[in-house]
Design a binder for these strands. Structure first.
Length: 853
DNA sequence: AGCACGCCGACT
DNA sequence: GTCGGCGTGCTC
């Protein structure tokens, strides 16, 4: 038996399995998914076992053995290993990168090279060398080094070199000669936390006996024994010390006498340990919820891989349906994964799950420390929980019997990871569910076009899938190779308790300006704010900072500079004072007067939350504002703090960026204002209208969720835009119809798929040449695929044309059908590899990009 | 990615 | 004549 190992080197040349012998002693411990240490060339590396097999594709006589198995249990399940391969082939990343993404950061290897005194030191080597007649007297500096290392036992090579600067070559020589010994260590960044714990070793009576036998001067020791006699349970050493106000030596003394024992005990850092969650019971479902729950639970019970798209208006009670569906899944002895966008993984959300399922729930989100994260993950691995709720990466929870995967707010772009592996959690979920025969529920009040598209009958999909077929070259062809399932649409149109959706007003800010109101609050919103303050009701104000000063708009007529070829707004480029389209490269000079109405009120648009906060203070003296944006929420727990403050009505206004729009539920909020609804709309992105509709619908949904009815004001310079009109009428269907038409007309997703390739280099000429070469090569390769429709746009400069002193050019591939275009892109990129190596050109490939920068 | 092996300039 | 520069190529 041999093991195929993917080693911890994210490079093209090492992106394959390497075969290793499994030493007899490790045979029991090596499994698919094991993390191992292996010799690799002259060094020792971490790797993951991805296959066990009998026939290595390398001379078995030359195979090296695995040196070590790094964990008691494999951190990855075989299905995750298979999924990693699928991820790496679908999203074009090195396989090790995909594997690494599946385990907590704490398990990422830290390589340390340590130096010890070698066995050929002074005593051992003398005779040998003397007999060979060699000069054996060590130089004084060598003696110093050896003494120093001996004193430390073992020392990190870096610290040794910094202690003996400029002795690098001497030290190297000493290693070669065996006076010093190099050992390579692979360390985890984090391990299970251990705490010294004191255990009584006998019954209370015996302890009291011992206490009496102690000499009178050992007052403290007596005290400890009596304490343990009184409560004969293990206690944390630190607790015992502070409890009795004694020092560790006292307890140590007792341990030496054998009167008690001190052991290291593994403890879990439970971030929620100090909180109790009141248990909740399933609520009675509304008839609509009942229907939806029925469909989901039936599928779960039948162990069928099906995908549901649950379209439920804000406040329709999707979470309760999730909770009861999970219960069905648990009743079957299977496990459930719940994904929520990072931003809405609030304590409130956690509370609902912990309240229903208690300590069967693990929570994974980025605000946990690395150690806390590791412990939550460990609970999953050790099967101490059967529900996990978390952000994107929780889809890789090492469960073995997944029955249900829920993706809440499935339209959120944060499900797409922007770093390698650039996976989309929604598509990975479906792949993982296929492996387990599990049910997927995609929930949203504003489903993405991709997901709606998935519900269409195949004929209408024009034979295109949004997630594509897995490549046929997977090591083990499992359920991942099965064809994509069609999504089933479930709908909930009513809010619970028959509460009405809020009334939405569209405010035309052009009119405000023409009537002399230059403030960022329209007269009607101003009045509404006054009204709520007086009634002691609460207000949520949304100001999206994204798009800050990137687009140009006329404040008189609402004209926005658009690309004549692409129907998207142009990006303002500060450096050259030009407007550019980053799809096709079209460029025009920045206008000083509006080309449409000749007004001079044309400018870069954008304003910050800070300014709004100031103005609120001026307009409404005494108003209590909580501002939530990246500046005020970076500190750990601050997010929670602000929300609690607002919940307790210690503020009148919650002002913030997108983070105030998602999933919050405050009974006293009756007014919501979107101050500049256009900011997202004018981003140079074909999804701008979709994002605007989603954002306005979501933020509007914060109002009037309880007894008090809600009201929403949308301030805009483009009140006639269909995304704004549809949002104001709560009319998802008409928005979807229009947007689908737009996408289809322009060959955008979901009708076509995209791959974004970004090349970067320090020098523009070389970069442009490489980009051209790449595009030409890709076009040539694409010809072989005819008649598959494939279009290659660019190369053009990226919207962010330089990052960290590197210029960026991009190409966009638009295609239809299931052909493996990703493979072609990789091939075309490979033809550049020699140039790449020589001149440090980098190529990044994003399959199904969400952000086109 | 490292790290070693291997072939050309400034020093004892 | 050697130490050392970093260009190519391999790692089971």
């Amino acid at each position: 038996m041999y093991a195929k190992v993917i080693v911890d080197v994210p490079a093209k040349q090492t992106n394959r399995g390497f075969d290793y012998l499994i030493p007899e002693a490790l045979r029991e411990w090596v499994a698919i998914g094991s993390r191992v240490a292996v010799p690799f060339g002259p060094r020792k590396l971490q790797g993951f076992v991805v296959e066990l097999h009998d026939r290595p594709d390398f001379d078995p006589a030359k195979l090296k053995p695995i040196s070590e198995v790094l964990d008691l249990y494999p951190p990855l399940t075989p299905d995750l290993v298979e999924l990693a391969e699928w991820v790496s082939q679908t999203y074009l990343c090195h396989e090790i990168t995909a594997l690494q993404a599946m385990v907590p950061g704490a398990l990422k290897a830290k390589y340390e090279r340590h130096i010890k005194v070698g066995d050929k030191d002074l005593d051992g080597a003398h005779g040998d060398l003397l007999s060979q007649g060699q000069h054996t007297l060590l130089l004084p500096i060598e003696e110093d080094i050896i003494e120093f290392v001996r004193g430390k036992g073992s020392i990190e090579i870096g610290s040794l070199l910094s202690k003996f600067t400029s002795q690098g070559s001497l030290i190297k020589q000493m290693i070669t000669q065996g006076q010093l010994l190099e050992v390579q260590l692979i360390k985890d960044r984090m391990s299970a936390k251990k705490v010294l714990t004191v255990f009584p070793v006998e019954q209370p009576l015996q302890l009291m006996d011992w206490a009496e036998q102690l000499p009178d001067k050992s007052k403290k020791q007596k005290q400890v024994l009596l304490y343990l006699a009184e409560s004969p349970y293990p206690i944390k050493l630190s607790d015992l010390l502070s409890e009795l106000n004694i020092s560790a030596s006292t307890v140590k003394g007792l341990a030496d006498k054998g009167y008690l024992s001190i052991k290291e005990v593994e403890v879990q850092r439970d971030p929620y340990a100090l909180r109790t969650f009141p248990r909740t019971v399933p609520l009675t479902l509304t008839p609509e919820q009942e229907v939806v729950f029925g469909s989901i639970s039936q599928a779960v019970n039948e162990l069928e891989h099906r995908v549901f798209l649950l379209h439920g208006v804000t406040g329709s009670g999707k979470t309760e349906v999730y909770l009861q569906s999970i219960q069905t899944c648990l009743d079957q002895g299977r496990e459930a994964i719940v994904l929520v966008p990072e931003i809405s993984l609030t304590p409130q959300m956690v509370e609902r799950f912990k309240g229903r399922f208690g300590n069967q729930v693990a929570v994974l989100h980025s605000r946990l420390s690395q150690g806390e994260r590791f412990d939550e993950w460990r609970k999953i691995m050790l099967k101490q929980v059967n529900v996990v709720i978390g952000a994107r990466s929780a889809i890789f929870a090492p469960f073995t019997k997944v029955g249900l995967i829920i993706i809440d707010e499935e339209h959120e772009s944060s499900y797409k990871q922007e770093e390698s592996p650039k996976y989309h959690a929604r598509d990975v979920s479906i792949a993982r569910a296929a492996q387990h025969g599990a049910v997927v529920v995609l929930g949203s009040a504003t489903p993405s076009l991709e997901s709606m598209y998935g519900t269409l009958p195949e004929a209408e999909q024009t034979q295109i899938g949004s997630s594509g077929n897995p490549p046929a070259t997977l090591r083990s062809i499992g359920n991942l190779a099965k064809p994509k399932v069609r999504f089933e649409l479930l709908t909930m149109r009513e809010r619970v308790e028959g509460r009405p959706l809020p009334k939405v007003h569209i405010v035309d800010m052009r009119e405000e300006l023409s009537e002399g109101n230059r403030s960022m609050f329209s007269r009607s919103l101003h009045k509404a704010i006054e009204d709520r303050i007086q009634k002691k009701e609460q207000i949520v104000l949304l100001l999206n900072r994204r798009g800050y000063a990137t687009f140009v708009m006329c404040r008189s007529c609402g004209y926005v500079a658009e690309c004549p070829h692409c129907d998207i707004s142009l990006t303002y480029h500060q450096s050259a004072k030009t407007l550019r389209c980053h799809y096709c490269g079209y460029t025009e000079r920045e206008a000083t007067v509006c080309p449409s109405c000749s007004s001079e009120h044309i400018r870069h648009f954008g304003t910050g939350t800070q300014r709004v906060e100031e103005e609120l203070g001026k307009l409404f003296p005494g108003i209590r504002v909580i501002r939530m944006d990246v500046d005020t929420t970076t500190e750990k727990g601050s997010h929670e703090k602000w929300l609690t403050l607002f919940r307790n009505q210690q503020a009148d206004v919650l002002l913030g960026t997108q983070m105030v729009a998602k999933g919050l539920d405050f009974p006293m909020v009756t007014l919501v204002g979107a101050l500049a609804a256009d900011t997202v709309l004018n981003l140079p992105d074909f999804r701008a209208a979709e994002r605007t509709f989603q954002l306005l619908t979501q933020v509007g949904g914060r109002a009037g969720r309880h007894e008090l009815p809600g009201e929403v004001f949308i301030q805009t310079y483009t009140p006639e835009h269909y995304s704004i009109i549809s949002a104001s009428k709560h009319d998802y269907t008409s928005f979807m119809d229009k947007e689908m038409g737009f996408r289809k007309f322009h060959d955008y997703p979901p009708f076509h798929r995209l791959i974004l390739i970004t090349l970067s280099h320090e020098q523009i000429p070389l970069l442009m040449r490489s980009a051209e070469t790449f595009a030409a090569k890709l076009k040539e390769l694409a010809k072989s695929l005819a008649p598959v429709p494939i279009e290659i746009l660019g190369p053009v400069a990226s919207p962010i044309s330089r990052i960290k002193d590197r210029y960026r050019f991009q190409c966009m591939v638009k295609y239809r059908g299931e052909a493996s275009i990703a493979g072609l892109v990789q091939q075309a990129a490979a033809t550049l590899s020699d140039v790449e190596k020589q001149y440090k050109l980098t190529i990044s490939i994003d399959v199904d990009p969400q952000v086109l920068m």
